[in-house]
């Protein structure tokens, strides 16, 4: 048994791969730590993958959610500027083009994941994915 009585990981509620030091495999097989990823890594991986496409998703609004520690982010996705809402924890990191990891509450992200983050703001352009075959 744990002396601290804390069975959950510090990243409870977030996927484990956002934890600083997590090993990420790019589409060409190269391994990088999550904190070392750059915009080009995502762009090149999508090109290599064949079936995935990178979309530019602009943050249109960030609103409080009824869920504790959560926010509702509205994105304008891709060339068609489709409006998509997602509800995420305030510490959930998104990858902003040319800037890197960003979350609504960077202090909390850093505290929980040790991942350095910028503040996600309205107007930021995040990397998102779609399937190429969708027409």
């Amino acid at each position: 048994t744990s002396p601290h009585g804390s069975p959950s990981s510090p990243s409870a509620g977030l996927p484990p791969f956002f934890m600083k030091g997590s090993i990420i495999q790019l589409a060409d097989g190269e391994l990088k730590r999550v904190e070392d990823l750059r915009t080009e890594d995502f762009v090149q991986s999508a090109e290599v993958s064949g079936e995935l496409k990178i979309d530019s998703s602009t943050v249109e609004s960030i609103e409080c959610s009824r869920t504790p520690n959560a926010v509702i982010i509205q994105f304008s996705v891709g060339e068609n500027k489709a409006q998509v809402c997602v509800e995420v924890l305030v510490e959930y990191p998104f990858f902003v083009f040319g800037q890197g990891w960003s979350s609504c509450c960077p202090d909390r992200t850093t505290q929980l994941l040790a991942l350095s983050c910028a503040k996600l703001s309205v107007g930021d352009v995040c990397i998102s994915l779609t399937f190429k075959s969708l027409k």
């Binding site: 990178i54 990858f95 998102s128």
Partner: peptide, 19 residues
């Protein structure tokens, strides 16, 4: 040590194709 695929890190934000 677990290795995670790059596409796990960024969200799928495909809109629902209703039209």
């Amino acid at each position: 040590v677990p290795v995670f695929p790059w596409h796990s890190l960024v969200p799928f934000l495909a809109p629902t194709q209703s039209d």
